[in-house]
Write a protein that binds this DNA or RNA. Sequence first.
RNA 1: GCUCCCUUCGUCUAGUGGUUAGGACAUCGCCCUCUCACGGCGGUAACGCGGAUUCGAAUUCCGCAGGGAGCGCCA
Length: 459
Amino acid sequence: MVRTRFAPSPTGYLHIGGARTALYSWLYARKMKGIFILRIEDTDLERSTPESVQAILDGMAWLNLDYDEGPFYQTKRFDRYREVVAEMLAKGAAYRCYCSKERLEALREAQIANKEKPRYDGHCRHLTQASDGPFVVRFKNPEQGVVEFDDLIRGKLTFANTELDDLIIARSDGTPTYNFTVVVDDIDMEISHVVRGDDHINNTPRQINIFRALEKTPPHYAHLPMILGSDGKRLSKRHGAASVMQYREEGILPQALLNYLVRLGWSHGDQEIFSMEELIQLFDLHGVNRAPAALNPEKLLWLNQHYMKHGDVAFTMKELAWHMAQLNINTNDGPPLADIIAAQSERTKTLREMAERSRFFYEEIVLSDEMRAQISVEIIPAIQKVCEKLEKLSEWEKTKIHEILVAAAEEAGLKLGKLAQPIRIAVTGGTISPPLDLTIQLIGRERVIKRLQKIFKQG
RNA sequence: GCUCCCUUCGUCUAGUGGUUAGGACAUCGCCCUCUCACGGCGGUAACGCGGAUUCGAAUUCCGCAGGGAGCGCCA
């Protein structure tokens, strides 16, 4: 039985890199008909916040990455960790270390000065008697031999135990630390495959040693390369949209983000577009690339437009409604959102842009002087003509509207474009809109007539 | 400094000893066109470097260079 987990620490928002890790982990579990678990690694009491927990939960929900078990919180498992620490102490797999932070600091400095790798020197490893005073608990790492594991993505990885030191598993206040809680949790939750960022590669041999000390078999590991910003540098605040929910605010559809993310490091021949069903079937950890990948925002936009055009309309409507609300556009009085999507999706890249450019369907327009100036006096009689015909049009429908426009242009001896653009400005307040006949249809007769009349009545 | 990881067009990638090195985004040109777009057609553009193995290397091996990660009482 395959059991995977996504184990973020709640010290910030759900990051795009974390989202991909979650996606890969989720896909693998779904593909193998296994279990996907969400675990919140909040043992760092200083930096973990409830807001971050909520942000992660929200992000997962928006991406529709559902979990079968959890969310589990490590802070609720402290008793269990204490129990295992005691067990390890009892069997001699761990020991109390009374070294002061000052001593450790001095040790580190000396090692760095000596061009050595800073690590604990095992000072308290062989103490025979317990002392008074504060202590931490350290894991007794093997001093010889190597740790080997077969990474699903990187292949065989080997580490010498001499490179590892005796890491702290319980702080002086008794709280457990990361490398230890991960192991205990992965054991208790019976995790079969650990999918995580490759910044954890160096932690893996330490964790495997703890597994062995507890006489458990380590899970399989798959270490994903990191995601870089579009400038090829490490992702940071300066790259803007690093949080998943920020992509939502920018008008990206979750399907587009997921599709984009999955192709960042994984591929199936030349295929670019994948449904979730296809991904569950086709995805494989073995096919994941080993090199870090840089973000390509334009490609995300391209995918986003694809999903706006061809994705699930009902879902897109919900997201669009959210954006409309964000922009304070009341969509009750105007065309159905489905019509907006049909009309705008091939000319906008994001839902936010779609919402922004659809305001004139729902609200009164303001014609700036600059726009007004683009409607020449010579054209006004033709506009009036169009207006009169529209008023009398029996069937308010774009092909009929189109006929009126074409006829009016012909009558006035104008190319359609010469008439259409001024009318577009008159009815939308701008130079950009869907095809004019459709635009007029969707704005509705009453509003169109009113807007056109405003042009020729004011002269 | 030490350990580990990585390296095909600008970007994401296909490629597993013999290909005109393919696709996608972006970009450029043309076509379509009532605006903006969509779409169609075409173009520019890559195997980091040096050895070795081989009849033959993007593909195997070894160096080098460059990039990244880790080396916490953070996760």
